[in-house]
Design a binder for these strands. Structure first.
Lengths: 209, 209
DNA sequence: GACTGGATTGACTCGTCAGTCAATAGACGG
DNA sequence: CCGTCTATTGACTGACGAGTCAATCCAGTC
């Protein structure tokens, strides 16, 4: 669990995790071999099994580490009393999109191999995954109590739509269906929120970002 | 290609496709064996390879058959001049949700094993998949020309949000995160459209379904 | 300068499964 | 009722890859 005790300062466990992230992102979890991960890490095959019980446990670890960070972030955002719901959702969208911008490989693995693969593998993580929906729902619920959001769309339902829209955008970037530039990422943040909060139709209030 | 010439009237190819649909839905494409499909169809192992070149070709066929039906449906909906964009989107949402209601196993396979698995396998179908986005974008574009929808959210972007929201709902049903009752399906149709077109915030116009 | 215990190595095992193939059955035309 | 062609069978093969393990290395200890 702790970093390598060896004084060369190299944490091989971390090395393997980072290599796995790259290999999983490049080849896909199922398509790659454990030896690919070992090679990418510049480490012997057996060492992977010294630090992890199975190939899946590596993916497990990558997912759980990062997902928890996101859950904490959403919780923190929801906790701020002073800011309106739309801004909270903007911050959530920003967090997720920035995560992709800064660590596209890790996010690709998380989305493609876990979140969107809730069959087979991701089923194990359904609890953690749906916690994210719940927290977003919490934001919507608060806004409905304040009267900022309409009461006729259930918070859970709204959260699914909001999260689904964001994940679809990430998928679009991951599979090169959408352009990936700094400006696009920034624009996207505002637009998802505008689409979901303000709606596509005219007549809805357009707030400036 | 044609149905079995044998006069017993049983099309074994179809039998295998339907069995595969059930097995893929139950166990997942990667987790199941070709022999599971053969057993489910009540057919010898080798016969599967008489009708299909590979396990993947079966999935391929299931996907392509059904996806084309959906593409045609969207195109047909978009073609109707008389109805407003919101109603077109409602019809699209209805079509997809009803598809799931009537053939949950087939839709589960399509969503989980192809659409949301655009890595590994679904990459082959990216063209077909993104055609769906394009056609939805077409609806939005028309609405913007008419002045019914705001011009500041690009049609392609709006389409991704809309489709993403629907797919997220289907995923919620597939993985038992959302209740699956007739009423829920009906409510969902109206609510996705209301969420995306009308927006979550108050002030947007709420049209009756 | 032996001793201990974790780190590291990579050849090997062992089950699994997609795809093959040679054999058999059955329909149909002549 | 023979010959031909397709449908159908299921045992078999061959590759592949996850996980094992016995051996070796090496840092710190007494």
């Amino acid at each position: 669990m702790a970093a390598s005790r060896h004084p060369n300062g190299v944490d091989k466990r971390r090395l393997i995790l980072d290599a796995a992230m790259r290999v999983f992102a490049r080849q896909g979890f199922h398509a790659c071999r454990v030896s690919d991960v070992a090679d990418e890490a510049g480490v012997a095959y057996g060492l992977v099994y010294h630090y992890f019980d199975s190939k899946e446990e590596i993916l497990n670890t990558l997912f759980s580490e990062r997902w928890q960070v996101m859950l904490d972030a959403i919780e923190e955002i929801d906790g701020r009393q002073e800011i309106p719901a739309r801004d909270k959702l903007y911050l959530v969208a920003s967090f997720i999109i920035d995560s992709y911008r800064h660590e596209p490989e890790l996010m690709k693995v998380i989305i493609v191999e876990v979140t969107r693969a809730a069959n087979s593998f991701g089923r194990v993580h359904l609890d953690q995954i749906s916690k994210a929906y719940d927290r977003i729902a919490g934001i919507v619920e608060g806004a409905q109590r304040d009267g900022a959001f309409k009461p006729d769309i259930s918070p859970g339902f709204a959260a699914m739509c909001f999260y689904g829209a964001i994940e679809q955008l990430l998928s679009g970037w991951i599979f090169d269906l959408l352009p990936q530039t700094e400006e696009e990422f920034e624009r996207a943040k505002g637009l998802v929120v505008e689409a979901i909060c303000g709606g596509l139709e005219v007549g809805a209030p357009e707030m400036s970002a």
